[in-house]
């Protein structure tokens, strides 16, 4: 305690300021962020993969498309094999392409597809979800119907059908996935908007005379954006897996592009004798999805601690 003021009794004694300064929302989030192990792990790994994807042309040791049948199926260096060489640390595939280079370039495709499909589905799902939650009534009924319709369509089957009809390219896969996986965005945004919409500060904004777009963008969106980010990470992972599945089935990204899903598909014929052909891209996929999910989980813990047990 600090000492009292030496003055007369008329002056109130001063004791040490016992009002604890609450941190601002941003400061609080920052503090929680750095102490959250899963979030930090996911972020660091994802940033690493992002860096690899951006720097792919610079860091990949070989051309991922360069076929040299003379050195096909070299095992990775941890294999106790005379063929293993530091020239191809992860070995080569059945066409003699450097596996490490293909893996590095493949990260570009995975991230691009995940990000773009998430963006497209996010815009669609958020728009209709927020509209349904905010306006309610008839709008809500229509949106609910659309969501139910969408949920009754099996994603992989529809994607296969569309791709086999209109042909397949990277961008077609992105659009097909983007137009199919907005359901979770819509459902989550609808219910969170409903919650926020009934809070007094929204009524206050209406009474002030704010226009509807202003209320949605400045009063509602900032308070549901954390849920949006969580769903976005989940959907990004979802899109990446779907792309891998489509590529594996031969209807996604076309060879010789180095998609991880395609690499698994191409490796599956050699799986018995050269399991690393499937194991390496599989592991890469696993690490990418894990880090994205850890990031999303962490994000939820950080932004909405009241929902934690």
């Amino acid at each position: 305690m600090s000492e009292a003021v030496q003055d007369t009794n008329a002056q109130k004694p001063v004791i040490a300021d016992r009002t604890i300064e609450e941190p601002s929302p941003a400061e609080r989030a920052r503090k929680r962020m750095f102490s959250h192990v899963g979030f930090m792990f996911g972020t660091i790994v994802l940033l690493g993969i992002l860096a690899i994807a951006f720097l792919a042309p610079l860091i990949s040791p070989h051309d991922p498309l360069d076929q040299q049948l003379a050195r096909k199926l070299i095992p990775p260096i941890w294999h106790d094999s005379p063929k293993a060489t530091w020239v191809h640390p992860l070995g080569t595939d059945q066409f003699g392409r450097d596996y490490l280079s293909r893996l590095i370039h493949g990260s570009q495709i995975s991230l691009l597809i995940g990000f773009a499909a998430m963006l497209i589905s996010g815009v669609i799902g958020t728009a209709i979800g927020v509209a349904a939650g905010y306006f309610g009534g008839k709008v809500d009924m229509v949106v609910n119907f659309v969501i139910t319709t969408r949920l009754s369509l099996p994603v992989v089957l529809v994607a296969l059908a569309v791709v086999s009809l209109v042909g397949n390219s990277l961008w077609i896969v992105i659009w097909v996935l983007g137009l199919l996986i907005w359901d979770r965005f819509a459902v989550v945004m609808r219910s969170t908007t409903q919650q926020v919409r009934n809070l007094d500060y929204v009524a206050a904004a209406q009474a002030i005379g704010c226009s509807t777009p202003r209320i949605i963008f400045t009063e509602i969106m900032p308070n549901i954006v954390n849920n949006l980010i969580v769903v976005a990470t989940v959907e990004m992972a979802h899109a990446i897996i779907l792309e891998a599945a489509l590529s594996f089935l031969g209807l996604g990204v076309q060879p010789p592009a180095p998609s991880w899903g395609l690499m698994i598909a191409e490796g599956k014929n050699h799986m018995l004798f050269d399991p690393w052909l499937v194991g390496i891209p599989g592991t890469a996929l696993f690490i990418l999805i894990l880090s994205i999910n850890l990031l999303g989980d962490g994000m939820r813990d950080i932004t909405a601690p009241e929902n934690r047990n």
Binding site: P25, D200, P222, N223
Partner: peptide
């Protein structure tokens, strides 16, 4: 208006 609950009447962001 002035509302009852000062915790829900101010946008936390």
């Amino acid at each position: 208006p002035i509302f009852q609950d000062p915790y829900s009447s101010l946008n936390p962001r």
